[in-house]
Amino acid sequence: MSRFASCKRWAVLGGTALALTLSAPVWAKQYTVAFVPKLVGIPYFAAMKKGMDKAGKQFDLKVIYQGPSSADVAQQVNIVSSLINQGVDAIGVAANSPTAFGPMVKKARAKHIVFYSTDSQVEAKGNQLRVSQVNDKALGYKVIDVLAEELKASKGAAKGKIAFVSGGSTATNLNTWIKFMKQRLKDKYPNIKLVDVQYGGEDVTKATNITNQLISAYPDLDGIVGINTTAVPGAAQAVLTSGKKGQIVVTGITDPNTIRPYVMNGTVNKVVLWNPVDLGYLTGWGVKQILDGKQFKPVNEVPGLDHKIKYDAKTKTLLLGPPMVIDKSNIQLDF
């Protein structure tokens, strides 16, 4: 009797184990999520990848990170095309051009692949999720407010001549921020005059040269706003070598690692950014929700993030949060 019972126990155990093994793919399917950044070999997107990897560990996602070596949308489309044929579960891009992905989004959706964009959005209708680092308007306004504050601190009043140094002239998100910055200047700081907008690409040497020329072209320049991660250090270097440190305010949008030397030596006091690691993490979480067929609420609790995340159902946009000011006190952040 006892022998029979033991046999039975073993059979049940074995059967359960077998059933579990067979059903494992059903209840623990690991999704493969691909992310195509604007370009690889740059710290900003590496930080986003760090966040996505963190989300991958937390929510059991396999993350593929693959991108072009220069900010070229044709190369991005080629990569997305191969990812679609690999049959991954979700594909997302930080788009070099908002309009170039239309056909790819259709193709992906036809194969039941989730398509999302993050950091730099895709216009296409079929795009299921946009993860936005900041409200574009809030960011543009914040940068100009910081600039005005700095001008006030160094010149006594929020006035003077300023210039913008941007990255690629085709980069849609940079152009949107510029638009809102101009709007803020017009509405709130009529005494700050924008004299020029120039483009230096994703190249710090070009940004340095352009700023040098701006400083010469407008000898009474009071401030420079860098719009991307290479423009701010380039501008700071030009201000430093032309001996205008303290006379020309440099601020803009960049990450702490890139700008650290200039904050430490006092050429730059404050810059504005968001946390790209959190942005990557939020992207991973958002994609997981869609893959699991869950709906977003207007305000979401995201495990692992210390603040609540807003979702706009009309534009299908998850918003990371308000922009963050980086100065000497938090310059040691590493992302």
């Binding site: 070229d72 044709a74 489309v77 051009s97 239309g102 056909p103």
Partner: peptide, 16 residues
């Protein structure tokens, strides 16, 4: 062909 495929014409295309 490229502009049609990408639904976008790019002034900085073709550098490589």
């Amino acid at each position: 062909i490229s502009a049609s495929r990408l639904t976008t014409a790019r002034p900085d295309a073709g550098e490589v």
